[in-house]
């Protein structure tokens, strides 16, 4: 009985997953399970295989070894990096939102029902009244939210985001973080990648630390510790505590000290 409930609860299960480009393994022997209602971040330095692992979960890269099991009929809402979007492309907010329901639609016109549903999602994300705008005419935070809205319009079981705070300013980062926390509170499962330890990772309930292999998996308090961080980044790091949250300092070997007549910060 208990087993059955647990099975139904598992959205994604990676079983000894290895991904490679050519002969070079980028992700090696990764195991993790993601359950419904979880809010997890894959953290690691650049080149650690975060994005590759995310793409394997999304199904756009096939693992060379191991398997990824999904809940039957799992719907994923994917939010790509803001930097990968062509902001000059001639589309309005409404057209972007409705895109995700295009796989079985033969009629080009957006129907009244689709428009109403899209306006509803936009309203929920604080983007009411912007549906007719060109995507370029939005602020950074609004642009990010439009792509979250598009993913939500697909009625996903899980929201998957690639580096949601990369290339955005501090204000937008806060907006994104609050938005994701609100969605999680409302029952949405979230999986994201980030290299932003203090700005994003430290706020998440669960962190999967990846450097080709999984180095640690747990809450920020458990994994944002000098031991794990040294394994992750290959350099010693300090961890302080501020307001009950770990804060990672990476200036243990500050190359600027003494260069401009200044002292260590």
């Amino acid at each position: 009985m208990n087993m059955k409930v647990a099975e139904k609860d598992v959205l994604v299960h990676c079983h000894h997953v290895t991904c490679a480009y050519g002969d070079v393994a980028v992700v090696n022997d990764v195991n993790f399970t993601l359950r419904r209602g979880e809010f997890a971040g894959i953290v690691g330095p650049s080149g650690s295989g975060k994005t590759t692992l995310l793409k394997a979960v999304l199904g756009s890269i096939a693992p060379v070894h191991g398997s990824i099991d999904m809940l039957k009929g799992l719907r994923m809402g994917y939010v790509p990096q803001v930097e990968s979007v062509d902001w000059n492309f001639p589309v309005t907010v409404l057209e972007v939102i409705v895109m995700t329901r295009s796989e079985k639609k033969w009629w080009p016109r957006i129907t009244a029902a689709e428009r109403a549903a899209a306006e509803d999602v936009l309203e929920r994300l604080g983007l009411g009244g912007l549906s007719g705008r060109h995507i370029r005419e939005l602020s950074g935070g609004q642009q990010q939210r439009v792509f979250v809205a598009r993913a939500l319009f697909h009625s996903p079981d899980i929201l998957v985001l690639d580096e949601p705070t990369s290339g955005v300013d501090v204000r937008t980062r806060h907006e994104v973080l609050h938005l994701l926390a609100d969605l999680h509170d409302a029952g949405m499962s979230v999986l994201l990648t980030t290299h932003d330890l203090n700005g994003l990772a430290a706020h998440l309930p669960r962190l999967i630390c990846l450097n080709k292999e999984i180095v640690a998996d747990g809450s920020p308090r458990e994994v944002l510790v000098p031991d794990v961080l040294e394994k992750l980044y290959g350099a010693p790091m300090h961890v302080l505590e501020h307001g009950g949250m770990p804060v990672v300092l990476d200036h243990s070997e500050n190359p600027m000290v003494g260069r401009f007549g200044g002292k260590a910060v």
């Binding site: 756009s60 994917y78 790509p80 895109m99 080009p108």
Partner: peptide, 23 residues
Amino acid sequence: IVLGYRKFLFSTFDPEVAEVSGV
């Protein structure tokens, strides 16, 4: 192009997400 309008639009604008969304 008329019948495939939405799919062409999606895969032109954002091929990666289009693929994940089933196009």
